[in-house]
Design a protein around this nucleic acid. Sequence first.
DNA 1: GTCTATATCTGGATAGAC
DNA 2: GTCTATCCAGATATAGAC
Lengths: 194, 194
Amino acid sequence: MNQTEEKILEAAEKVFLKHGYDGSRMQAIADLAGINKAMLHYYFRSKDLLFERIFKEKFSRFFPAIEETFQLEMHFVDKLCIFAEKYIDFLIQNPYLPLFVLNNINKNPDFSKNLPLNMPQLLLQSYLEDVEKGLCKMHQPAQILITVLGICAFPFLAKPMMTLLLGASDEDFFELMQQRKEEAKKQIRILFEV
Amino acid sequence: MNQTEEKILEAAEKVFLKHGYDGSRMQAIADLAGINKAMLHYYFRSKDLLFERIFKEKFSRFFPAIEETFQLEMHFVDKLCIFAEKYIDFLIQNPYLPLFVLNNINKNPDFSKNLPLNMPQLLLQSYLEDVEKGLCKMHQPAQILITVLGICAFPFLAKPMMTLLLGASDEDFFELMQQRKEEAKKQIRILFEV
DNA sequence: GTCTATATCTGGATAGAC
DNA sequence: GTCTATCCAGATATAGAC
């Protein structure tokens, strides 16, 4: 991959993440990359393909490295806590990611194959073991998944609303997210630990 | 407001909510309303103004009728529970609303005036009273706000992801949301009640 | 108020020189 | 590989008849 291609990808990522597919202009990407519009087509043929390239990469990163976490030898709730902390740290670095992924996930119907579909399985298995041992409260697995992801990801989805509601600056928000890591772990323990 | 105008608004709402501003076509709105494209401009001048009309209405409804709930005479946690149940019911009727509002909230910078900015105040006041009485656990108010809204709204933001991850149908999802009401109340009590 | 026809412009994509 | 110039479809918006 040469330098021009990389510059394009970098620019496309920024523009698409901020404005979405429909709101993005090839001209804007070219300008940001400091090259000509024709180059975009030379390297990626079409807007569609360029977008798909960006989306697939972002999508795969949105589904966090949950597998490695859940293969560790520890209690289910401890795994959830480790996951939450790592995930929030990741989202602090990529605050636009959740909204971008959720907006576009339904547009391309053939992304199922990229999905870590064993993720719910891994989670479920680890969960059931600890329920049996009496280490973990009984919940509906789907609700646990929603709840934990929500605790971590919702603040980033709601960032513009929150800064407005609370009259907070960007710095305030990121400070709040630093604290959110401890808050998340506390909540997870209260909710799921026996 | 005559019948044509209403049909347009109805159609515009559906199209904008589903495709967003950039992804929506005036032609699509006209088709859905069963009228001509020119009529849209006759009644609303431009796409921008039509969109703004829809967004403002949706935006004001996204901020739930929290005021009336929080003026009731009861404990803070009970208020949260009532709010959660009402709000999830509302979102079941308007599942696209959260994503739509969060996507566009940053685009129009002058919506601050429409904001129920006394909402955090009302919440805070009720909260502090009960903390003092020892009825409610100590938390950071901003974290409470994020958490409660997240418990209710995140599932709807994540709907496409969830149905994909869980291999669920639309019916399954709405069934899950019905159960979410009880789950939400349970979680709120565990998290915030002494 | 409602329609058809049309003007105008924007933006993705291509041709072709270098 | 990189650029300039250009094509062309599609979208908003308007003109003008009825």
